[in-house]
């Protein structure tokens, strides 16, 4: 018999055919819909922010990729899909009022420090790259604010979310919106849900984020428990606060749930796979604490509360995975 040249392999020998790059490309595609909605609502500035963020990550990625290929090192990312998602998240997570160079800086830090850097030095992303970069930016901003003798950022100093009238009077920023074509004047709550020109670019239209996010979560199997838990917890907390303060619970819910920082973050940042829990209970708990911490930080007028909350919780991801695990088959209860 001829000498065989057979390969020894363990099972399985087939694969579903869906890979990481496809997951990233489809995520990018879904976020592009949100980006388009944001550009329609917020205008050219939104487009520039997104293009700056995407351009920055692509330049960095291409440079590193070319270097790795040149040096015969296995490229960290064979496809630009994952860096593109990071860039898109940075673009959509920036406030529309941010200077363009800040967006470029955050994108640079995201791709270089927290995407490539974390992977290289920690073998895994423990912190959400875009969120961690923004926290660093916030830290710099806070130091500057403290240096000026202020505890809170000037943009937030007048906000009073601890009272019903305080919230009501803070809503002036969302009260001058008119839905185009229809010409319908929007109340602050309606604006927060449909069409807001203030705040995070990715949250310009909460309804678009909700629809696109839900489709993406179903289609691409995001960690939906985090999304559900975050939004439900925030809704309950906001409604409870509204009722407790004899205010307008609907406005409270609209403000706390539909500001871009939460609605976009819940679907596309808090579900970032590597930095979030794997277990079912861990994900529910993660969402619960994310919403609770965000809510608390929002009430305290802390700038970027949701981002800070996300990064803090990222640190405890492995602990969440140890809390409770679902009972496997064989442990659910004997029926004899």
């Amino acid at each position: 018999m001829t000498k065989d040249k057979l390969k020894k392999e363990e099972p399985p020998h087939i694969h579903i055919g869906f890979d990481k790059n496809e997951l990233m490309l489809k995520t990018f595609l879904m976020m592009s819909i949100i980006a388009l909605a944001s550009i329609i609502v917020m205008g050219l500035d939104a487009l520039i922010h997104i293009m700056i963020a995407l351009g920055t990550v692509l330049i960095v990625h291409s440079t590193i990729y070319s270097y790795q290929v040149w040096k015969d090192i296995e490229p960290t990312y064979r496809s630009p899909a994952s860096p593109m998602v990071a860039g898109m998240i940075v673009g959509l997570a920036m406030p529309i009022a941010a200077p363009f160079e800040v967006t470029a800086g955050v994108a640079l830090l995201t791709i270089l420090g927290f995407k490539y850097g974390q992977g290289k030095y920690f073998k895994r992303k423990y912190l959400n790259p875009a969120a961690a970069s923004k926290v660093i930016l916030l830290l710099v901003l806070s130091l500057k604010t403290l240096n000026e003798g202020l505890l809170f950022h000037t943009h937030h100093i007048d906000l009073d979310l601890m009272t019903a009238t305080g919230l009501q009077s803070s809503m002036w920023i969302f009260s001058r919106e008119t839905l185009p074509i229809i010409g319908f004047d929007l109340s602050p709550a309606q604006s927060l849900f449909l069409w807001q020109t203030h705040g995070w670019i990715g949250g310009a239209s909460s309804i678009v984020v909700l629809i696109v996010g839900a489709i993406a979560a179903y289609w691409l199997r995001y960690k939906w428990r985090i999304i559900v838990s975050t939004l439900v917890t925030m809704t309950i907390l906001a409604a409870g606060m509204g009722i407790y303060l004899n205010g307008d619970p609907i406005l409270r819910i609209a403000f706390h749930v539909f500001t871009g920082s939460l609605i976009f973050l819940a679907f596309f940042m808090a579900t970032e796979p590597q930095s979030t829990p794997m277990t079912n209970y861990g994900q529910y708990m993660f969402g619960f604490f994310l919403a609770s911490l965000t809510f608390g930080l929002q009430l305290l007028n802390v700038l970027g509360g949701s981002i800070i909350a996300l990064v803090i919780l990222n640190v405890f991801t492995d602990q969440f995975d140890k809390i409770v695990i679902k009972k496997p088959y064989g442990h659910k209860g004997v029926k004899k």
């Binding site: 018999m1 001829t2 065989d4 040249k5 057979l6 390969k7 020894k8 392999e9 363990e10 099972p11 399985p12 020998h13 087939i14």
Partner: peptide, 23 residues
């Protein structure tokens, strides 16, 4: 013709182990 294959598996594609020799 055995030479046209580079993996022979006893069992199925999901659970079978490939073997080192056609013997």
């Amino acid at each position: 013709d055995i030479r046209k294959f580079d993996r022979l598996i006893i069992g199925s594609l999901m659970m079978g182990w490939s073997i080192p020799s056609s013997e």
